[in-house]
Design a protein around this nucleic acid. Structure first.
Length: 423
DNA sequence: TCTGGGGTCCTAGGACCC
DNA sequence: TCTGGGGTCCTAGGACCC
């Protein structure tokens, strides 16, 4: 029984999302910036054709962008998240055996579809997603996830393929792997690509033909799996249910540098609450919380402070996490430094229903759980900004550390608090 | 002036125990 | 006091992904 996978990948996803609700952009190059308007993280094909590169700091690219009349957007994750859901719902019409791999990519298990015309089927997927959501996608089909990714990549580049490539024929696979650079293989990053080049491995085809021992020695067992997948031996199953996260991190750069303890408390409280909310959403508790502060990493003197606290008993109560985070912050804080970024990481995560209550803390837990449930539903209804703690300060104070989002698009699919509009 | 955020997995080496 | 070996756990660092 041979496996069969499709990977459906949205083209230039964030840029495409901006275009869906603003058709005037269809004739213009579009870029989307990272948080804080820092770097370019998405480009339309037209912007790529101008030579603008992914990851470039906005302030460096800005003159060029203005010269060419490129449309520039701050990232709008409410919009992208909502569009992502629409794409997934469309794909679910084709098969329930689907893995949402990232905000813009899904794997489909086509294991039972050998009898259908795959080319035709893949094209129907692509056209349906475009028609129902407005988002252009590319579809790659093969017997392993890694080969499907290769097919997907080529389908975008080849005019003939036009966004759909079924890679099941041995001769076609060989040709595809020969024209794929080794660094473009899923699982081979820049470091490994350089290392492999030094060892005479330049294409995906070269990599497919190394021995198992060679792969394991130079690329660890992870790389060996990649090599096997390139040979057509499926080593990565579809993951229907994403496993609960083992670490959860919320961090942001500030719009401006901060020096005051109260401002940092405010920012970190918001991050802590987001971490706690994420924990509750996946029904987990964390046994360890880490708080970190850093100054600008691009200046000569760069400071990074962090403090890790092991809790008596795992929790997802933001009240308790806030207590520890605030205390840790006070211990780390040095006045007179220009802080640029802060964050909270919760780890040692366990399922909430497996938490052993310590006698010391158990009397609080019931009350906390009920309060957290209430807060979650209030926030879902009225938005995150609706419920706040004293430590989070007034709305005035928040402006100082909030992100720069000078080029944000309108909230087409959500209102300002992140609520779904009823349409 | 301005440089993102959030994850996973594997390995090597040290600490510690028997 | 000296000696050897093996197992486990933890951490830091390095690689990758989107």
């Amino acid at each position: 029984m041979t496996s069969l996978f499709a990977i459906v990948d949205c083209n230039n996803f964030y840029a495409s999302c901006e275009r869906v609700f603003n058709p005037a952009l269809n004739s213009r190059p579009v870029v989307v910036l990272s948080n804080n308007d820092g770097c370019i993280i998405a480009l339309s094909n037209e912007a790529k054709a101008l030579g603008v590169k992914m990851g470039t700091p906005y302030f460096q690219a800005r003159p060029q962008l203005e010269e060419y009349g490129v449309a520039v957007f701050s990232s709008n994750y409410e919009l992208y998240g909502d569009m992502s859901r629409r794409v997934v719902e469309t794909l679910q019409q084709f098969t329930p055996n689907l893995e949402v791999y990232s905000i813009d990519e899904s794997f489909l298990d086509l294991g039972d579809f050998y009898k259908v015309d795959l080319q035709e089927y893949a094209r129907t997927i692509k056209e349906t997603v475009k028609q129902w959501t407005g988002i252009p996608v590319a579809v790659g089909v093969a017997t392993t996830k890694t080969l499907a990714k290769v097919a997907n990549r080529i389908s975008k580049k080849s005019a003939k393929a036009n966004g759909v490539l079924v890679l099941t024929d041995e001769r076609h696979i060989e040709a595809a792997l020969k024209r794929t650079e080794v660094g473009d293989v899923w699982g081979i990053g820049r470091r490994y690509a350089n290392k492999l080049a030094g060892l005479g491995i330049h294409t995906a085809w070269d990599l497919r033909n190394v021995t198992d021992a060679f792969a394991k020695k130079h690329l660890t067992v992870v790389g060996l799996r990649t090599v096997k997948e390139l040979r057509g031996e499926s080593c990565m199953e579809l993951e229907h249910m994403p496993p609960a996260k083992q670490n959860i991190c919320t961090s942001r750069s500030f719009g401006k540098t901060l020096t005051e303890l109260t401002e940092l408390e405010d920012a970190l409280a918001t991050h802590t609450i987001r971490c706690a909310t994420k924990l509750r959403k996946q029904k987990s508790c964390a046994g360890v919380i880490t708080v970190f502060l850093m100054t600008n990493r691009f200046t000569e003197q760069h400071y990074y402070y962090s403090r890790t606290v092991k809790l008596d008993s795992p929790t997802n109560s933001e009240l308790e996490l806030l207590r520890h985070a605030t205390k840790a912050l006070k211990q780390m804080y040095r006045p007179s430094l220009q802080y640029k970024k802060a964050g909270v990481i919760v780890s040692d995560i366990v399922p909430a229903n497996q938490v052993q209550l310590s006698l010391l803390t158990s009397h609080n837990t019931d009350r906390d759980n009920k309060l957290m449930q209430t807060l979650d539903s209030l926030r879902e209804k009225y938005g995150n900004k609706f419920v706040k703690y004293g430590v989070q300060g007034s709305n005035e104070a928040i402006k100082k550390w909030e992100l720069n989002r000078d080029h944000i698009s309108a909230c087409y699919t959500t209102d300002i608090t992140g609520l779904l509009k009823v349409s």
